[in-house]
Design a protein around this nucleic acid. Structure first.
Length: 586
RNA sequence: GCGCCCGUAGCUCAGCUGGAUAGAGCAUCGGCCUUCUAAGCCGGCGGUCGCAGGUUCGAGUCCUGCCGGGCGCGCCA
């Protein structure tokens, strides 16, 4: 309908141009909006306001001239000029009458579109370091990324979701060493745990499993492990230096093969846990991409060579630097360290180049907002490699703070003090967690009120929407019990029955759904859909309270059942996109 | 200090990218169950859109400067 009005206005403006009243302007963007207020009709365009100046006449007069030249249409019931020069359009009732049956026929397809024209888009999200279970901070990125991917799919994009596994860095070494030390303790060796080691209970669990599978194959006497190590932090030393020397000692005593085995074992255990966590959260990935594979394949060194050949690298203080300042970064960045190791950034350049080379028309990264300073250097690298940085969209997600009993819940990964995603799910349930995560704009801090999410009351917005769905399912059960029969085709020919204000409001709302999905997808803003569903549920509840659906007159009854089933479909489709279930009973 | 994000009702937040009288939920106050689920509905109260300038027919929205909050500024990832 919006497109129809757009086309009508376009024709009217062309006619005005032919009459010499307006200058012809093919590229003119004609705004068509939903009216904010019902008294403003269904759609409105401020086009006359926008053009008044160049046409040298007052907006209302111009609006009149536009309206005079509007071609006739079966969709438009009424046009009127209001306020300073808005053109308001009211859609003919008939145009809405067929909507319910259209939705019933389209069913799961209602709201989907071919807007994306099969563009291939990659959405990379979560990508948390596999150094422990996912916590609630990761949960938001997970929920957000998954819904963005869903929205893009619904609008006809070909989407591939991916998790980038940081399995090559120092953190992984610290992790492997931590597990090994716990394993040694399990073997009854006595040693104090490093200040900078990973302390979570899951470390001990993995160490125990390692012990079960491999016995004491990796046991070394504590004395040899600790011999001549520098002082740890509690003894006045530096914890970073200490942990590095522990890692070095582990490599030496175990030998590269055994060390790799433990490293790989720990990695696999954690990745598996993360994957299971996400699956239980309703999120699956098409691709798990290993950072180490980029190193093993030589992709990282290749990309460094390419940068060097293009003259973007230089040496300073023993390290190799990328001159990212040439591409608007704040400072140059190291790609190869003094010790010869490539940096995480070097991997990331290779990774992003690889994404582009895999043929995606667009690449989306969902990152925690604390990484925002990282964006310019990645774009800089892409530019330096002659790749178009505009094909990369980095979506930043602010942190979520948990509140319990009005108090902020403190969190820190290293200390092992954090609420895991699993705990959150067990605490408030998957639906509430998924909904709460995406109901705020992603660049807004999220105050996640655990008590509220758990509340089985009207304070909880998730239940409000689900309840509307359950109510409709209940009405359908009642329909059967009362001996009425209904199938969707029964509602196709009787839609002229829907004349109540509440019904028209609901129909109007349902007609907006595809626009909402489209807007939410293109702006990567799931919260728009969340708000829409709340409003739709509200319209339904109001209707429910105002009218009985199961009346004796079959045509009216069938029309109403058609309408509420259309509502059920939209509620379900929308909730599904958000990763929230649509229950039949509550 | 520099960079990015944010500041809208008592609280948590929308505001369709510059349009009409700034909207929801929660809280609070009042009303509605012999009828399809009251996890619901209807109504009331509640605002200097952080402050001050500027741009224009029009600014919560864009620009500048302050004030206040968050994050970032590693040869960590």
């Amino acid at each position: 309908m919006k497109a129809e009005i757009h086309a009508l206005l376009q024709q009217a403006l062309e006619a005005l141009a032919n009459d010499g009243i307006l200058e012809a302007n093919a590229e003119l963007n004609i705004p068509v909006e939903r009216g904010r207020d019902d008294s403003h009709g269904d759609f409105a365009s401020p086009i006359a306001l926008a053009l008044a100046r160049s046409a040298r006449c007052n907006p209302r007069q111009l609006a009149e001239q536009i309206v005079e030249r509007l071609p006739s249409s079966s969709v438009i019931g009424k046009t009127e000029i209001a306020g300073p020069g808005f053109i308001n359009f009211t859609i003919q009732n008939g145009a809405y009458q067929s909507l319910a049956s259209e939705i019933l026929q389209a069913d799961t397809r209602y709201g989907t579109s071919t807007l994306g024209e099969k563009q291939r888009i990659q959405v990379e999200f979560v990508s948390a370091n596999p150094t422990g279970p996912l916590h609630v901070g990761h949960g938001r990125g997970a929920a957000y990324g998954a819904v963005v991917a869903n929205l893009l799919r619904a609008t006809g994009h070909e989407v591939e979701s991916e998790y980038y596994v940081n399995d090559a860095g120092r953190q992984m070494d610290i992790l492997a060493a931590s597990v090994w030390l716990r394993y040694l303790q399990r073997c009854s060796e006595t040693l104090t745990f490093p200040a900078n080691g990973y302390r979570g209970a899951y470390i001990q669990t993995i160490a125990d499993e390692l012990h079960n599978q491999h016995g004491e194959a990796f046991r070394q006497p504590a004395k040899r492990v600790l011999k001549d190590l520098p002082a740890d932090e509690p003894d006045g030393g530096d914890k970073e230096t200490y942990i590095d020397s522990v890692i070095e000692r582990a490599r030496k005593l175990l030998g590269e093969r055994s060390y790799r085995l433990i490293h790989g074992y720990v990695l696999a255990a954690l990745v598996e846990e993360i994957r299971d966590d996400l699956l239980d959260f309703g999120i699956g990935f098409e691709q798990w991409y290993s950072e180490r594979s980029l190193m093993d394949s030589g992709a990282v060194t290749t990309v460094i060579e390419r940068l060097r050949d293009a003259g973007h690298l230089y040496e300073r203080e023993g390290a190799l630097w990328f001159r990212s300042t040439e591409f608007d970064d704040e400072k140059d960045r190291v790609v190869v360290r003094e010790n010869g190791q490539t940096t995480y950034f070097a991997s990331d350049i290779a990774y992003h180049l690889d994404k582009f080379e895999r043929g995606f028309t667009r690449v989306i990264d969902v990152w925690g907002a604390d990484h925002h300073g990282y964006v310019p250097r990645v774009r800089a690298a892409l530019q330096a490699l002659q790749a178009d940085p505009d094909r990369l969209d980095v979506l930043l997600v602010q942190f979520a703070n948990l509140y319990r009993g009005g108090e902020k819940v403190p969190m820190s990964t290293r200390s092992g003090e954090f609420v895991t995603l699993r705990q959150l799910r067990e605490d408030v349930g998957r639906d509430a967690a998924r909904f709460f995560y995406v109901m705020r704009k992603s660049d807004q801090h999220l105050d996640f009120d655990l008590d509220l999410a758990k509340a089985e009351s009207n304070e909880n917005p998730v239940y409000y929407i689900q309840y509307a769905h359950a109510r409709i399912a209940s009405v359908m059960r009642q329909t059967k019990e009362k001996g009425f029969r209904w199938q969707s085709a029964d509602s196709f020919d009787v839609t002229g029955e829907l004349v109540e204000d509440h019904e028209l409001v609901l129909l109007r709302r349902l007609s907006r759904y595809p626009e909402v999905v489209e807007a939410a997808a293109l702006s990567y803003e799931p919260h728009q859909l969340a708000y829409y569903l709340r409003e739709l549920a509200n319209d339904f509840h109001t209707y429910y309270n105002a009218h009985i659906f199961l009346v004796d007159a079959a045509p009216l009854r069938n029309a109403r059942l058609g309408l509420i089933n259309a509502t059920r479909i939209v509620l379900r489709n929308g909730l599904t996109l958000l990763g929230v279930s649509a229950p039949d009973t509550m």
